[in-house]
Nucleic acid binder design. Structure first.
Length: 499
RNA sequence: GGUACCUUGGCCGAGUGGCUAGGCACCGGUCUGCAAAACCGAUUACGGCGGUUCGAAUCCGCCAGGUACCUCCA
């Protein structure tokens, strides 16, 4: 394993870079090491379906890079500053005001939703990042970024707030190179909005905001008591932990502009060069063909998927079904959620995991009628092509058919090939795709349950021996209705409890 | 309104110029007392119109629909 393993793989890993809009060969800055930064959640509510897409996308990236033998430092921030005044929902109480009255600390709210987020991510089997920095923990670093922007002449103060001077910056650098925007278009197409008078230009963005009286999250700075602008947060923390130049920066496509564009600008304005070599953006999610929004009534929390408690959901969907469903689509495509699609994914996942279990029981032959090396090559080829998990999964299903055929005695496999096939499936299904077997629903009294079911099925065998099909079918039918799956075999029966 | 991207069979979703994606559903067959599971096989396709090409789902243009951003906050 390790680096030797990587160098053995003759293919290169290609990554689609938003900067160039092409797939580029991935070359890390320091051989053997990868710095990966991903924009994390804003902790002002429980995680919804939309949060899972970037988390799972970059978990796949993280896992695959590790699998290739890289030592990955994965930084994913927690945004816990700046939003605690008036929220997106006008109708709701302003959290800061409420916080004061109810004796709730804003940090307590942030902590609650941070814990909730981590809990949901763990259920989705998303590996924790190496570093999970908070914005509130890096105020000094952000003030330092603001100071450098001012010192280099790319910012100005206005009534205690500091703004990034986009037009000045655009004279020296290409503002819009990441998102494909043109500054002229931005200036002509921007509508006039209230509260913009502090800015010289509508394209400028705040890097330090003076706090209004009701804003209780505030820090002293040379300019005012206030808080850092959101765009400053990520560039301060990414470069702190990954260096002035690092390999990969990820996030949702919705963040490309202005957030990531502003990061590029601040990087150039403070360091004189860009920090990020590869920008990766995951696409968005729709539900029944519509975008997700609170006003549309299709806003579904992750926990509601897990419990099935939402009016649009016909049933509960386990975290692994959500994960598998997402991995069956390319991360750069929009993905549409529906009950029908999720139920299909649930069955597909079951088929895949069942085949993995069969691997341990396969009989070996002196020769193989299956080509494991070719299968393995196709799986890596897929992943090396910009993390094409749907293609990798399609290849794994070819492997599933092999496994089932061998199990049926219609194909055979040598001991060496079986070892290779088992390793391939363990690597891809568990390590790279990050799937896992579901916890068994019935955990208590399992032994007694086993005995009772076996007893019933043995009675059924007797009935069958007597050709008493009525009794035999009644037992099977009722057990099936309870959620058991009954399979007759040559020697007797097999059963399992579904869900 | 502007910019970018997308539109594949009953459903989801790969695929960038000629070659079976895959999963789920459905149908036929093998197996089974009958089923289930598994295996084998069949069927259903590239939004609309026009163009380039010997040949297009794949390139170009127009139209329709969708998504994201274009504003504060994150």
């Amino acid at each position: 394993m390790g680096l030797e393993f990587y160098t053995q793989m003759e293919q290169h890993l290609y990554i689609y870079n938003t900067l160039s809009k092409t797939k580029e060969v991935f070359t890390p800055i320091t051989p053997g090491f990868v710095g990966l930064y991903v924009c994390g959640p804003t902790v002002y509510g429980h995680a919804h379906l939309g949060h899972s897409r970037p988390a799972i996308t970059f978990d796949l990236v993280h896992r695959y890079l590790k699998h290739l033998g890289y030592k990955v430092r994965y930084v994913r921030n927690i945004t816990d500053v700046g939003h605690l005044v008036a929220d997106a929902d006008e109708g709701e109480d302003k959290i800061a005001k409420k916080a004061k009255i109810d004796q709730l600390e804003p940090m307590e709210i942030a902590q609650t939703f941070t814990n909730s987020y981590r809990n949901d991510m763990a259920k989705l089997n998303v590996l924790p990042p190496s570093i999970e920095p908070t914005a509130t923990g890096h105020i000094i670093e952000q003030i330092e970024v603001v100071r450098k922007v001012l010192k280099n002449g790319y910012g100005y103060e206005s009534n205690g707030s500091i703004y990034f001077d986009v037009e000045k910056y655009a004279q020296d650098y290409n503002y819009g190179k990441l998102s494909g925007r043109k500054l002229d278009d931005l200036l002509t197409n921007t509508r006039e909005l209230e509260g913009q008078d502090e800015k010289h230009s509508s394209a400028d963005f705040a890097i330090w905001k003076k706090a209004q009286p009701e804003h209780i999250m505030r820090w002293p700075s040379p300019w005012s008591d206030g808080f850092p602008g959101w765009h400053t947060e990520c560039i301060a923390m990414s470069t702190k932990y990954l260096g002035d130049r690092f390999d990969i920066h990820g996030g949702g496509m919705d963040l490309m502009f202005p957030h990531h564009e502003a990061e590029v600008a601040q990087s150039c304005a403070t360091l004189g060069h860009e920090s990020v070599n590869y920008w990766m953006h995951n696409n968005m999610i729709t539900i029944n063909g519509q975008k997700m929004g609170k006003s549309l009534g299709n806003f579904i929390l992750l926990d509601e998927f897990f419990s099935g408690k939402h009016k649009l959901l016909e049933q509960a969907y386990s975290p692994m079904v959500i994960r598998f469903f997402m991995l069956q689509a390319n991360y750069r495509s929009t993905l549409d959620f529906s009950n029908e699609a999720l139920q299909a994914a649930e069955k597909g996942l079951e088929r895949l995991l069942k085949a993995v279990e069969l691997l341990a029981n396969l009989n070996v032959s002196s020769e193989s009628s299956v080509d494991i090396a070719a299968l393995k090559a196709k799986c890596y080829e897929a992943m090396n092509d910009d993390f094409n998990s749907p293609m990798a999964i399609a290849n794994l299903f070819d492997g599933v058919r092999m496994i089932n055929s061998i199990n049926d005695g219609k194909a055979h496999i040598s001991a060496t090939d079986l070892t290779a096939l088992t390793k391939l499936f363990n690597d891809f299904v568990f390590d790279i795709l990050g799937l896992q077997k579901e916890a068994i629903a019935v955990e208590e009294n399992t032994e007694v349950l086993n005995e009772v079911v076996d007893l019933l099925l043995n009675l059924r065998i007797e009935a069958k021996a007597n050709k008493d099909w009525a009794t035999s079918d009644k037992i099977r039918k009722e057990l099936t209705a309870m959620g058991f799956e009954i399979k007759d075999t040559k020697d007797g029966f097999e059963w399992e409890l579904k869900k």
